[in-house]
């Protein structure tokens, strides 16, 4: 069973995403701070990452590079469409940028396609 890394500052977002992924047959690990994220990246105990960047500062870009070095696919989740986030994110290795609210069906199709 694949494990998805969920990053978010909002506890309810983590809870809902974990619940949803679990229903779809995935495990999840979650992080709400840089410390948590650091630990999970070092353990490499995940297969794909969903990174809700809302509430994080510029240091988040360096973590993208770290994840990219693990060769695990990752997606950026933002609350607005911003070309800067798009270009910077893709440059750092993100597979794409999703804007909230995310449609559950689209998300699951995307995860399945990436983990095939």
């Amino acid at each position: 069973m694949a494990t998805i890394l969920i990053l978010s500052k909002t506890p309810k977002n983590i809870e809902l995403m974990a619940e949803f992924l679990n229903k779809q047959g995935f495990n999840s690990v979650s992080a709400s701070s840089y410390e948590d994220l650091d630990r999970i990246i070092n353990d490499k105990n995940f297969d794909l990452a969903l990174l809700d960047i809302v509430g994080f500062d510029n240091r988040i870009w360096s973590y993208f590079e770290k994840i990219n070095q693990t060769d695990k696919p990752f997606f950026i989740i933002s609350n607005l469409k911003n070309p800067k986030i798009n270009s910077e994110g893709l440059k750092k290795g993100a597979k794409g940028v999703m804007v909230k609210p995310i449609l559950m069906r689209e998300l699951i199709d995307l995860i399945k396609a990436m983990l095939k």
């Binding site: 978010s8 809902l16 989740i77 449609l103």
Partner: peptide, 14 residues
């Protein structure tokens, strides 16, 4: 008070 607030999915789905 934020504990229950979310924005990752739409209320319609949650």
């Amino acid at each position: 008070s934020q504990i229950e607030a979310y924005d990752i999915f739409s209320p319609a789905e949650v």
